[in-house]
Simulated scan of single mutants.
Amino acid sequence: MIRTAPPGVAHNARPYLYGGEESALTAALRAGQYNHSEVTEEFEQRVAAFLDVPDVVAVSSGTAALHVALLAAGVGPGHDVLVPSFTFCATVQAILATGARPRFIEVDPVTACTEPAQILAALTPATRAVVPVLYGGRAVDLTSARPALDERGVAVVEDAAQAFGSLQGERRVGATGVVTCFSFGPIKNLTCGLGGAVVPRTPLEADTCRRLRGLGIVESAAHRAEATTYTVGEFGMRVQMSPLNAAVGLVQLQHFTEAETRRRELWRAYAAALDGIDGLSLVNPDVDRTVPSMFSVRVLHGHRDRVFRALRDRGIGVGVHYPPNHTQPAFSEWHRSLPVIELLGREIMTLPFHQHLTPADADHAAQEVRRVLAGVSR
């Protein structure tokens, strides 16, 4: 097995810490409140201020954020939820957790994101929500579809797991008037270790999300500490964000400008190094407006699997994000013919992308791609 790569490019993705996370985590541990505390609430307030939104509800994961947001939007048994098949399976599992049915839809082959026309064409009388997936961090603008969706009572719940910090127009994703769900998992633009958040539309929706994440209990944790009873008003789950995770996220948020800069620089370094390679096309994240979470390419002419194996053998940590969900056994009941996504599923490949990498590392990985593609083309 050939190992010519710098150590960093052996990893497709890695968490990046700035140095203050350990002391923040230690302080949260010593405080002794591990389920919910003022640290979690401070994280919510800081994220809301960063996004310029009234409120943010922190939860235990991006999957939990989607589940809570869909329930808060009234999604349940008997409903259809439109969702691109080209996403991580967690998006679909969150829909199923509500009792609703996923209705898989296509994406644009250049951006790997769904478009308004695709959503409008897939509406059914049972459609209650649409979950656009912001693939690679790219914002999805559904402005032209919103009048028709609003008329039908269809909620938009953004899966922005990969898009924290990205822009739609002049505003951050999350501040554009729809329910937005973020992930703060290990390899995201901002990590809490594990975590997620919902950006609600209204104070009522925020209250609903907080009850759903906290076992349906009406009163706040601070109120319960001073009372002899509490009220369980509705269904709920235990998916709060721990202060331990929030402490890590607060440090990460202080350094987010650095994350934006370095991730855009790395994406542009890859794009320059890969320019002009035959048999390869880039998935366009609109990097000027996006804080990219990955670097995705399409390997053309049926060569993806050979190129993937050859690069792994050379120590380049390539990945596949993602196999189409409508072809998965767990979701076979909702299979539809989606030729664009099926082709993407055969061609997509992600190159190593994380903040430990330098532009020189990106250039090395790109040159290995160039060599491997030249070999398989012969």
Rank of each mutant, 00 (worst) to 15 (best):
C192S: 12
E347W: 01
A227L: 10
S144I: 02
D363V: 14
G319F: 01
G319D: 11
E41D: 15
A65S: 11
G137T: 14
V199L: 07
I95M: 09
R171H: 13
F235G: 06
Q240F: 06
T176S: 09
V107Q: 05
A206K: 07
E158Y: 12
V198E: 06
S281L: 04
T91F: 01
H326E: 06
A365I: 04
I95V: 15
D141M: 03
L134H: 14
V57A: 12
T124K: 08
L373Q: 08
P109E: 15
S61W: 01
R264N: 10
L82R: 12
A24K: 04
A330D: 11
I95R: 04
V340T: 15
P203I: 14
E333H: 05
L190H: 01
A273I: 07
T87F: 00
L253Q: 05
V291W: 00
G19F: 03
T327C: 03
V299D: 02
A27I: 04
V320D: 01
V68T: 11
G169H: 12
G174C: 11
G174L: 05
G76M: 11
R128S: 02
A175P: 06
L344T: 13
Y270E: 09
A65D: 04
V173Q: 04
V283F: 03
Q254K: 14
F331T: 13
Y230C: 12
V372D: 09
G276H: 10
F182T: 12
G319L: 00
T290S: 08
T261A: 13
T231I: 10
G315V: 02
A362W: 03
G249N: 07
G276T: 10
H67G: 02
I217T: 12
H303S: 07
T191I: 02
H36S: 13
G195T: 04
W267H: 15
C89D: 15
E333G: 06
P15Y: 06
R371H: 13
A100R: 00
A122H: 10
G195R: 00
N12E: 09
M241W: 04
E158C: 09
E22H: 05
Q254W: 03
E205C: 06
G32Y: 06
V318E: 02
T176L: 03
Y322T: 15
H354P: 07
E42C: 05
D361E: 07
D286R: 10
R238T: 12
R224W: 08
G19R: 02
P147S: 09
P186R: 07
L70W: 02
V251C: 11
V130F: 05
M241V: 09
V57N: 04
L134P: 06
L134Y: 13
D313Q: 10
R371P: 03
P132V: 11
R262Q: 15
E158H: 08
I105E: 08
R263M: 15
D288K: 02
C209T: 13
V133K: 01
A247R: 05
L142V: 08
I277K: 01
C113S: 10
I316N: 00
